[in-house]
Design a protein around this nucleic acid. Sequence first.
DNA 1: AAGCCGGGGTT
DNA 2: AACCCAGGCTT
Length: 367
Amino acid sequence: MNDLDKKQDAAWVRRLLEWYDTNKRILPWRSSPTPYFVWISEIMLQQTQVDTVIPYFERFVQRFPTVSELSGTDIEDVLKVWQGLGYYARARNLHKAAGVISDNHNGIFPESAVELQKLPGIGEYTAGAVASIAFGEAVPAVDGNCLRVFARFWGISDVIDEPKTKECIRSRLAGYVSEGNPSGFNQGIMELGALVCRPTNPDCGQCPIKSGCMAYEKSLTAVLPVRKPKSSVPHRTLFAAVVWRDDKVFVMRREYDEMLGGLWRFPNVTVKPGDETSESLGKIVEEQISFRARITGKYGQINHAYTHFKVSITVFRCEFNEGTAISSELRETLVNVAWISLEDVEEYPFDKASLKIIDLIRSVDFS
DNA sequence: AAGCCGGGGTT
DNA sequence: AACCCAGGCTT
C-alpha cells in the first residue's frame, strides 16, 4: 500500500480534521497565522501551557510586531518582556534568529521545514509546526501531546522518551499528514491531546478517533504512554546579600552563557550542608561584590524550585561600608552591576527567585 | 544517549 | 510531592 492509498484509507484523519474544525479554541495566534505569529507562539509554547503563553504572546507581538523590529531591539528588552516565562535561552535564540533572518534572508522567513530547522531555537518539532501551519507543508509536528495520542492510538508500549520511539511515530505519521490541510492535521492532534486525550483522565467518550484506538479498545489509556523514570532533584542552600547604600540596593547581571543568562540577581553564595553560618556570607563580600559591607540583619528565607534542583535562600540585609573604595575588578565589570532603588525594579529583568527576594524585602521593610 | 534549562497547572 | 507540558541545545 503506497502513501496515497493510506491517506485515502485513513478515516481517522477525516474525523480528526472535522473534530478540530468544530472544537478548536480561539487563540491569539490562530486569528492570523502569519509566519511571525506562528513562530513566536510555537517558541513560547515549548514546554509551556497555552493559558500561560497567551498574555506573554499578546505583549510580545505588540512590543515587537515584526522580525525587523525584533532584530533591531536590545536583547535585554526582549528578556524584560520574557521575564517570568522561563527557559530564557528561547528568548536569546529568538533574538538571534531574528538577526539571521534580517541579515541572511532579506527579512523573509525560510518556508520549508528543512530551512527553518537551521535557525537557532528551531528543532524538528517547531520546524514542522511552522512549516505546516504557516506555509502548508505536509510534514508532521511531533510534540509531547502527539506522542501521547499515538502511543495510545497505535498501542505503542515502547518507552516514549527514547529517540527511536519518537522517530518511529514521526515517520509513521508522515504517511498520514493531510496534503490538503497539514495545519489542521498537526494542530488537531495537539488540540486533541490538550482537550481530550489528556495525560490523566482522558475523555474518550468525546474522542473523534476512539474507533481504531488500541488503548481505548484494550483499556490501556492509564498505562500508555510508558515513560522513563525521572531521577530525583537535589536540594541546595544559598545565602543572598541585599546590600543597601542609602536608598539603593546592589544587583548584578548574569553572563549570557550561564543559567538564567542576562537576568539580574543579588549577590549569593552556595552554602555546604553543615556550614550554614553567616561566615559564608562574608565570602560574598570578598569574592563577588568586591567591596566591603556589613551584615545588619536577616530578612528571612525563600524557596524556589527549578527544573533540576531546588533551593532555599536565606536573605541577609547588609550595608555598604562608606569610605571603602570600589575595587578595580568591580569597576571593569560595571556594565554588569548596578545600584537601584526598589522602584526601579520594573526596568530590570529578574528571575523568579530574585523577585521573591524583592517581595520579601518589601514585606519586611513595610512592617 | 543523557543532562541541562523555568515555571506553572494538575492530580 | 510528583507529574506533565505545542522542545532544543550541549556534551
